[in-house]
């Protein structure tokens, strides 16, 4: 059901969560649940938002909650967003921490291992 928006893969030790399409009030809670289900025990999480065409405050809430939970659990997390695009705009507007954001998946993966 949520396959259109979220897919999972492993990148080394990290769980790679790919989000795509529009993420908003209508699908964010469900996507959130799906991520928690898959990435619950991951040692590190990479969330790829480069294919996200829209991100609203519900999506921000989802990401915000996720980052909070993982931070508490000591699981490193990185958000990969394009240099421009809907996701970057929304996250910037919400003033997400710059250290969470990366523009490149490989670089983000390396950074997670530090």
């Amino acid at each position: 059901m949520t396959d259109r928006w979220v897919t999972f893969a492993s990148l080394g030790d990290a769980e790679l969560v790919r989000l795509a399409g529009e993420i908003d009030l209508s699908n964010a809670p469900e996507i959130g649940r799906e991520i928690v289900r898959h990435a619950g025990g991951a040692e590190a999480v990479l969330i790829d938002l480069t294919a996200v065409s829209f991100l609203d405050s519900a999506g921000v809430r989802l990401l915000d909650g996720l980052v909070g939970d993982l931070d508490r659990a000591g699981v490193p997390i990185k958000l990969v967003v394009g240099e421009t695009g809907a996701a970057r705009m929304t996250l910037q507007l919400c003033a997400f921490r710059e250290d969470l954001l990366s523009t490149d998946l490989d670089r983000a993966a390396k950074e997670l291992r530090i």
């Binding site: 009030l25 829209f54 991100l55 609203d56 519900a58 809907a86």
Partner: peptide, 21 residues
Amino acid sequence: DEQTAQAVLLASSEAVANAIE
């Protein structure tokens, strides 16, 4: 332009979401 469009889309979505919620 793309940036304006995205801003308008975001703001409009939020306003509608507010109205619904």
